[in-house]
């Protein structure tokens, strides 16, 4: 009986082979219980298949396009703003880093922040001299 039940459920998912179909049919004719189960399943599947869907509102398409327009406006404007500010900064930083690396590697000098920005170095001797 279990196999026949499996066969019955499978018949709603996929097409059975001709032998399987014949076997199921003969059981439906012989057994009232199988026939009752098949009738119930038919009713369930037919009800689901013919279930009328509710509908989206008439403004559905307009609302989607409005949302798309507003979202793209925000993302695009934000992107443009950020890009316009960061692009020159990123470019200048890249040039500065390349310059520093070049200076240190090829000129053999140790670059300090103080020498770079032109402030005299305050060594311990200089500080002591100032105090005295």
């Amino acid at each position: 009986m279990k196999n026949i039940k499996e066969l019955l459920f499978r018949s709603y998912s996929t097409e059975l082979t001709s032998e399987e179909g014949a076997e199921l049919k003969s059981h439906i004719n012989k057994s009232d219980q199988i026939k009752k189960e098949k009738d119930q399943l038919d009713m369930i599947v037919n009800t689901i298949t013919n279930m009328v869907s509710n509908q989206f509102s008439r403004e559905f398409e307009d609302q989607i396009l409005n949302k798309i327009n507003s979202k793209s406006w925000w993302t695009e404007s934000l992107y443009n703003e950020l890009f316009s500010v960061f692009k020159p900064v990123a470019f200048a930083s890249s040039i500065a880093i390349i310059g520093l690396v070049y200076y240190q590697v090829y000129m053999g000098d140790i670059l300090t922040i103080n020498s770079l920005i032109g402030i005299p170095e305050y060594t311990i001797e200089n500080i002591l001299a100032l105090i005295q």
């Binding site: 459920f9 499978r10 709603y12 998912s13 189960e37 119930q40 399943l41 369930i44 599947v45």
Partner: peptide
């Protein structure tokens, strides 16, 4: 899954 779901609905 289809078989099991139908079994449940029944």
């Amino acid at each position: 899954r289809t078989s099991r779901a139908l079994q449940y609905l029944k």
